[in-house]
Design a protein around this nucleic acid. Structure first.
Length: 682
RNA sequence: GCCGAGGUAGCUCAGUCCGGCAGAGCAUCCGCCUUGUAAGCGGACGGUCAGGGGUUCGAAUCCCCUCCUCGGCUCCA
């Protein structure tokens, strides 16, 4: 008579023979809905853990299936895909050493130490081999092994033994961090006999029982290789072991894996769509921006069309900033090195600053500004400040220059010269939370105005582990203030531990674009440090001097980055109020140029940005030119229109309308433009 | 900075492996056409083949260095 266990799912409960697997339990409980990749087991003490379907479940637990088409389920099947890839690499490149292979957003990677970097042809071979292995229906078999046995088994895998060693000195958590979303280390908690950690090894077992491959891994995995239904290898790249430059460079292969071929296809199409929308490509095609080699990496020229879009953005933020009680300033691009010594930038930020400009007749070098804050402090200290003036919100569109390392510059998303819609709010300690809440609401309004909807994520970044200045008390106060503000603004927020700036913690606000990608845009930082370093003060109602807090905030973040996000999110087809050219006049033949000019003039008189196509191309040719330029409205005019004082309206999106009265169209487009600009200039 | 892939006309790309007159389409300009909703026809213009050095009778092509771009590591607005 074998002992029995009890398992539950919701209200259901059932008794099973001891040794029953998670899959058997779920079947007995009739708890399987759709495709599942693993189980979630909630132990009697309330902790929930992911569990292999073929792994026996303990007594008195709650079990549930993890569906393949959830984030959690995809992470598991991607992790299994990473194993499959490592096995294929091992087959094709004998002697390859494996490091870690976690699932990441939308995919997975695995790092290898191999003789030579992988070529695109290698990736094709590896992927083909993965398909063969998947068809073999190898089972992923979990096995717990003692530390010594693990060390022995992976004696010829230095990175695996290093992971095991990391558990020993208690730094396994840092190894987990290296792995990103998840990690490969098989440390399954310090639960082994005698306090020794127990490791788990996953073996890929062929139907005949032969062990094809084994990896140290925390799991769980899908039950068998054919349960990784759709995958594709995307690219290879160098990556440092443990992400540290003093460590060997490994070869990383990125792949993506999905619960179905359909989902994979949809993802690959999204990648293609992203490529089509790339702001560098559209910027060139639509003549928005220019990045000639002579200019230098990370620097941009805004051509007239791009500049008009940017002007709309700047007008919006300038007007809105003034309306919300900020005051404007203008500051220079360079300043004496001493300023940056006082601010602490030279000590904490030097590697991101351009080198000093030495001048013969000056005792001090000058530096390009990487941030605007010291200048705004100088604006603050231009005279004695009273508590009655606080909060004092100083704002500027300030262009900063940062010497980003050559490998990290990325179009306008990560640039060396960029403009922040920067503001520094000087306030009393008790005003910090209110000010941060206002900033979050301001950011929300901005995202809405520019068509990004609600923020997708709010994250509070806390004190960095390494470089930072200030006392624990100051950091705690500031971090608490940010969390309180985040709570009051009603957003769920997450904590990014150790991701703060060197001078204080911050809130970052992210948004999703039209094709679902997430961008970090707004940043709000609380600073107690610069006020101290510059010894700034205000006179309180007690007549004594007090030190204010500073809130740094940039809502667009970087105008260039936000511009790039706009280009990509709108696919270059801007809403009318942002579009560089709002209306394109197309005469059907040269005879009607006069009437086209007349209509254009009436539009221009109301402030609409309008152009007339005076080329001698065919009508089809001119229509095509208008469409490919993505102008919101094309107006076709010929004899009948001139006669009746009408236009034929061809919107970029939507159906064309004929015989629209000119005055009606003007009123329509003017209203549309006004509507998209909640606070029109003037 | 490190690893990999690239750089040919304003744009998109052939030609590079295997050294032998530098090409196509689009754009631009000129001419013809006088047009009714996504490319009319013809011609012209346009190149230090990223830059420099080397090998060679001869280099876009092979070798070396530098710059720049792309994808990553890392970082970040």
């Amino acid at each position: 008579m074998s002992p029995s266990i009890t398992v539950r799912h919701g209200d259901a409960s059932v008794q099973l023979d001891a040794g029953a697997t998670a899959l058997q339990a779920l079947k007995a409980l009739e708890a399987i809905r759709g495709a599942i990749v693993a189980a979630q087991v909630t132990l009697p003490d309330g902790t929930a853990r992911q569990w292999d379907l073929d792994r026996p479940v303990p007594d008195d637990v709650e079990v549930a299936g993890i569906a393949a088409d959830t984030d959690e389920g995809r992470a598991i099947l991607r992790h299994s895909a990473a194993h499959l890839m490592a096995q294929a690499v091992t087959d094709l490149f004998p002697g390859a050493k494996w490091a870690i292979g976690p699932p990441i957003t939308d995919g997975f990677y695995y790092d290898f130490d191999v003789e030579r970097p992988f070529t695109p042809e290698d990736l094709e071979r590896i992927e083909a081999r993965m398909h063969e292995l998947a068809r073999e229906r190898q089972r992923y078999v979990r096995e717990e092994v003692a530390r010594e046995a693990a060390l022995e088994e992976f004696a010829d895998q230095p990175y695996k033994t290093a992971i095991i060693e990391l558990v020993d000195d208690g730094t396994i958590l840092s190894a987990v961090d290296v792995g990103g979303d998840d990690e490969q280390a098989g440390a399954d908690g310090a639960e082994g006999a005698g306090g020794e950690p127990t490791f788990t090894v996953y073996r890929n077992v062929r139907p005949g029982g032969e062990v094809a491959w084994s990896d140290l891994c925390r799991g769980p995995h899908v039950p068998s290789t054919e349960r990784v239904p759709a995958f594709k290898l995307l690219r290879s790249a160098g990556a440092y072991w443990r992400g540290r430059e003093d460590q060997p460079m490994l070869q990383r292969i990125y792949g993506t894996a999905w619960e179905s071929k359909k989902a994979l296809k949809a993802h690959l199409e999204l990648l293609e769509e992203a490529k089509r929308r790339d702001h560098r490509k559209l910027g060139r095609e639509l003549e928005l921006t220019h990045h000639p080699d002579e200019l230098g990496p990370g620097l941009s020229i805004f051509l007239p069309a791009g500049a008009l879009v940017r002007k709309q953005m700047e007008d919006w933020i300038r007007d809105e900033t003034l309306a919300r009680g900020y005051v404007p300033v203008y500051t220079p691009h360079i300043a004496k090195e001493d300023l940056w010594r006082i601010s602490g930038h030279l000590q904490n930020y030097a590697e991101l600053m351009y080198p000093g400009m030495e001048l013969d007749d000056s005792a001090s070098a000058y530096r390009l500004k990487p941030m605007n804050c010291p200048f705004h402090i100088l604006a603050y200290t231009s005279r004695t400040r009273s508590y009655r003036e606080l909060p004092l919100r100083i704002a500027e569109l300030g262009t900063v220059y940062r010497y980003e390392r050559s490998g990290v510059v990325n179009g306008m998303l990560r640039a060396r010269g960029f403009t922040q819609d920067d503001s520094h709010i000087f306030c009393r300690a008790d005003q910090v939370v209110d000010e941060v809440v206002d900033c979050i609401e301001f950011a929300r309004d901005l995202y809405a105005a520019f068509g990004l909807g609600e923020p997708s994520r709010v994250a509070v970044s806390t004190r960095p582990d390494d470089k930072s200045i200030g006392t624990d008390e100051q950091w705690q106060y500031a971090e608490r203030a940010l969390m309180q503000a985040a709570e009051r603004s009603g957003y769920d927020y997450q904590i990014d531990a150790g991701e703060g700036a060197f001078y204080g913690p911050k809130i970052d606000i992210h948004a999703r674009d039209a094709i679902g990608r997430e961008w970090q845009l707004t940043t709000i930082q609380v600073d107690f440090n610069l006020p101290e370093r510059f010894d700034i003060s205000y006179v309180g109602d007690d007549g004594a001097k007090h030190q204010p807090f500073m809130v740094h905030r940039a809502l667009f973040g970087s105008i260039e980055r936000f511009f790039a996000v706009m280009v990509e999110s709108f696919n270059g087809a801007f809403p009318t109020w942002l579009a560089p050219v709002q209306v394109q006049l197309v005469p059907v033949a040269a005879d009607f140029l006069g009437y086209a000019d007349e209509v254009a003039g009436r539009l221009r008189a109301t402030g609409v940005r309008v152009e007339v196509d005076a080329s001698d191309g065919t009508l089809g040719n001119k229509i095509r030119a208008a469409q490919t330029s993505k102008v919101p409205y094309t107006l076709v005019v010929g004899a009948s229109e001139a006669e009746a004082q009408t236009v034929a309206v061809r919107p970029y999106r939507g159906d064309q309308r004929k015989d629209v009265q000119v005055e009606a169209f003007v009123a329509e487009v003017v209203a549309e433009i006004a509507e998209k600009r909640p606070r029109e200039h003037g």
